[in-house]
Design a protein around this nucleic acid. Structure first.
Ligand SMILES: [Mn+2]
Ligand SMILES: [Mn+2]
Ligand SMILES: [Zn+2]
Ligand SMILES: [Zn+2]
Lengths: 137, 137
DNA sequence: TACAAATTTGTAATCGTTACAAAGTAGTAT
DNA sequence: ATACTACTTTGTAACGATTACAAATTTGTA
């Protein structure tokens, strides 16, 4: 909890209760949730929480570099509390999103064919380990 | 024109006028357009064209493997007539999407950490060659 | 020509997201 | 304490992309 407040202050974000809870959720649940999933999860313990606040907060966090917004598939935005660079795998069966640790040459800050790269995303899609095992049964 | 009809028949898609025009557009314009861009472009010469038809057609084409749907950024779906594997660069200034020919190890059909990969997308974002030159002026 | 199947069309509905203005909160000066 | 200000949150309405749906049209075939 103390840690979260420090993180926000370092980024010049006032640590309101809503902001703390949202960042705490993203630190605890590494499921790459959508804005709506975060809202649904927090609505129980914060009955007055507004979905607009979730959207506003996620936007602020992303702009200040606290979170990373992911455009994977099915055009919905997903959020994660960012650490080291990694790539993503989304399962077409269960919808789960996995972090894949496979190393890749990140082109961030490099110049590719004359273009200056600022973000580099690698998105895989297929059938996850879990769902493959189920089919075998 | 003849070519397009053959492509559709090979994929068991009846070559209606609408489908021919839409595929023709995607063959001629490598701009990775959205459904709406395609609709706007064709509406002039096909006044009765319905946007629903564009969406239906793009869905059919994607399911049958004629086109590839791209989820880049800003959660909007873009379409391209697919050839060799390549990666994409989207400019934050002008919004243009570039094909980048840089080789990369495509993981399609491979097994990564137990997951079976079916699609592999690499998305770059930054400032394109064109926009970089403009800033220098 | 008749009929069934496929395709297209227009409209309404849905979903994720954003705009906006009112209400609430917190810090500061008086 | 009070008043003022800036910031944050909230609820509602609006928006844009996409989908659902059923009627109308076209197509292929008997
Ligand atoms: Mn991740
Ligand atoms: Mn391309
Ligand atoms: Zn799965
Ligand atoms: Zn540009």
């Amino acid at each position: 909890m103390k840690n979260i407040i420090e993180i926000l202050k370092e980024k010049d974000i006032a640590p309101s209760m809503q902001r703390i809870k949202i960042l705490e959720y993203l630190q605890n649940y590494k499921t790459h949730p959508t804005a709506d999933m975060i809202y649904q999860a927090l609505a129980d313990e914060m009955p007055t929480l507004s979905k607009t606040t979730v959207y506003n907060t996620l936007k602020t966090f992303t702009e200040k570099g606290v979170l990373v917004a992911l455009s994977l598939f099915e055009n919905e935005v997903r959020y994660e509390y960012t650490k080291e660079p990694h790539i993503h795998f989304k399962c077409t069966k269960c919808g789960r999103i996995y972090d894949v640790l496979k190393t890749f040459k990140c082109l961030k800050n490099e110049n590719i064919e004359g273009h200056q790269v600022i973000e580099h995303h690698v998105n895989l899609r297929g059938i996850c380990k879990n769902c493959l095992e189920k089919v075998e049964d």
